[in-house]
Amino acid sequence: MTVEAQPVGGERHRSLPTWLRAVRYYAYQYKRTWKGSVTTSFLYPVLYLAAMGVGLGSLVNKHVGVVDGLSYLDFIAPGLLAATAMQVAGNESMYPVMGAIKWWRTYYAMLATPLSVLDVLLGHLGWIVLRLLMVSVIYLGVMAAFGTIHSPLAVLAIPAAVLTGLAFAAPISAYAAAQNTDVGFTTIYRFILIPLFLFSGTFFPVSQLPAWLQPIAYATPLFHGVRLCRGLTEGHLGWQAALVSTAYLVVVFLVGCWLAERSYAKRLVV
């Protein structure tokens, strides 16, 4: 670190990009709560995989045999990885965004410094990337302990889970930045996150749904996240499916970013 890196005059050497300074703030904040957060990230997969994968799985395996060619544990573990990424991203993009505007006014503190509205948004999303990385790495570790990883490609399930989370974080942030109360958040949980969690191929193949519901399931970002994660940990992902699902998630993320930038600017710059 150079001592002559003084800010006076606005010119200094090797300065950190402004949006990363916002990420650094969240990291600083996280130091206060990281223990509880890491414990949850660890317990969640352990509990789910034990109850659903092993417990319920033994019944499924006994009566149905394999699900899409996989044991039930192997089937739901990567599905839950993607679903967890969605939930973490959703949680981090609702109350934290509205609160940073209405309650703690964190965004306004940032905007009084050299940070711009885009920096504030990218800082928020950048922090979510770090949170998703943490959660996915831990999840993958637990999956390994349960013996459900069957391909070296499984490492790629980490970026796949991060991308899945981002495809939710960006549009939900756009929505949250426009809210004055939390009423809408309950709606998002009830009508988007929970239904997707249950019906996007996480717990059973989408082909089990009534024919008219299947196209809807295929159109959800979580379906594509699940497909990527499952294909990668089990090593059966075709390159076409990989390409389509990745592209789909990237598009949802970018459209979400565009909406969020507009929503943030509308709320914060008046």
Binding site: Q6, Y28, Q29, R32, W104, T106, Y108, P114
Partner: peptide, 29 residues
């Protein structure tokens, strides 16, 4: 600003630290 934008959960010193870091000042400074 008219309304405080302090981080109430952090300490007094931490508030100065995070704000200074937005300006990318070295911790020592």
């Amino acid at each position: 600003a008219q309304e405080d934008t302090l981080d109430l959960e952090l300490t007094v010193l931490d508030n100065l630290m995070i704000y200074g870091r937005y300006f990318d000042l070295p911790k020592k400074v």
